[in-house]
Design a protein around this nucleic acid. Structure first.
Lengths: 248, 248
DNA sequence: AGCAAGCGTTGATCCATGTCAACCTCCTGG
DNA sequence: CCAGGAGGTTGACATGGATCAACGCTTGCT
């Protein structure tokens, strides 16, 4: 529970309690016993509020904690010297941020809030300590890291082997599935990121993203109104990913 | 130390000993004390030989162990239903394979030997058990996973934001650096993978890879003879990555 | 040792996506 | 509540890399 002077953020003095949290089954405590989860409460320090477009952490900063998203959403990105940005992921509630920092004890990417958000701060040294005692925590933490690796491989597949429309379809399906897991509609949601950010994530220019959205709409697959998306033909989108018009 | 009947592999009955291994500082034991490393020897089961082009594991197979490469090299890839392949990485001695399997207890990619190779088999349940006792092991294991995440983000950057020649230059620099870390020449090495595999990894077609090699050679940056690469102008390659001719 | 198949190179052409530009829309902050 | 700027759409055109094709070279298998 350490204040950082460089960034204008608020550390609410409210103890987060995993045992009280409704994100349990999406978050770090997943699969742990009730007794184990109660012990987690000693692990999670304070919550921290991050306003839209503010950084939770920056590339190069010292690594001390990982973060569980309680409300809101984030993007992570990597910057090249010449200013090019690669968005490496979009994270929503229950997902864990900051795992990249473990390897060098410095963060290697930036995490930026896409809307006013709140995270639980999990001191990393305490996490290691506690996961030596609680088998379930250790195992779940490993799963979270491994899942991130698997996700990354999926993104490589997107970027390396799929065409523009396949990438966007896969992206929408992924969002839909994650919204569903959080109890929201699988078919209707608001995008929290811009076309430019989607483009960066998918290795496309924003114009290409915009055109693909329009084409999906013309084809009756979705309806788009700015950031509001309604999926009309989920199977149609799935077919786009699995049997693209002309594979690359 | 469990035999797998499905794949024709050899499990040598030689106990691997981390304490005797010269790959220490590249592998899981990095940063651990001598006492700690001695305890590791109980963790590493048998070694396993994998012949060129054979699978170490396949996507969908149950996950039981991770593997440390003792000799040789591997590629990992993900397959789409329609047969498209995305190579997600090339691994060399001391690097760890199989981390993707933790999240679902099934492997999510294929690992194929690029040459006759040998790996140390590390039973995963034992690893968790031992890393609850040995702080150094726990920490190093986390670092290995985190490093993989950081590496993946670098690949996303490649695939999402860089042009063909930048990608290949970055790839060569990365190989050079990893060969150096293993005591080989930074400037001269043999590629163990085909143009097609490089292309898949970099999101390019094999012809594009071949043309880029030729262009680097014409430009006096490298000399290529099939799989034999000699880097002539390391800085020239670096400039290609950091200040591409015309950024995307 | 010999030869076929896989791997690599190079050229010509095409097309998916990038680039540039104009314009529209809708929040968002004062 | 209004104004201005950021975000989004669409069109016209350019181009990097894909595709198709032909051929040469190893290399690894018998």
């Amino acid at each position: 529970m350490r204040m950082r002077a460089t960034v204008p953020i608020t550390v609410a003095d409210i103890k987060s309690a995993c045992s009280q949290c409704n994100l349990l089954e999406l978050c770090l405590p997943f699969g742990m016993s009730e007794t184990e989860i109660n012990r987690l409460d000693e692990l999670v320090g304070a919550r921290r509020k991050v306003k839209r477009s503010q950084h939770l952490y920056r590339s190069g900063e010292g690594f001390e904690a990982i973060y569980a998203i309680r409300t809101g959403s984030f993007k992570t990105d990597v910057l090249l010297e010449d200013g090019r940005e690669q968005v490496t992921g979009f994270q929503m509630t229950g997902e864990i941020l900051g795992l990249d920092g473990i390897s060098t004890e410095q963060h290697s990417c930036n995490a930026v809030a896409l809307e006013d958000s709140e995270v639980c701060v999990i001191a990393y040294d305490k996490l290691e300590e506690l996961s030596r005692e609680i088998e379930g925590l250790q195992h779940q933490f490993h799963k979270v890291m491994s899942k991130e690796i698997v996700r990354d491989h999926g993104v490589m597949m997107l970027l390396g082997s799929m065409r523009a429309e396949e990438r966007l379809a896969a992206f929408l399906l992924n969002l839909s599935q994650r919204f569903t897991a959080r109890g929201f509609s699988p078919a209707e949601f608001h995008l929290r990121m811009t076309r430019d950010e989607i483009g960066s994530y998918l290795g496309l220019k924003l114009e290409t993203v915009s055109r693909a959205f329009s084409k999906f709409q013309e084809g009756g697959l979705i309806s788009v109104q700015q950031k509001h998306i309604r999926i009309i033909d989920l199977d149609g989108l799935r077919k786009l990913v699995h049997h693209p018009a002309s594979p690359r």
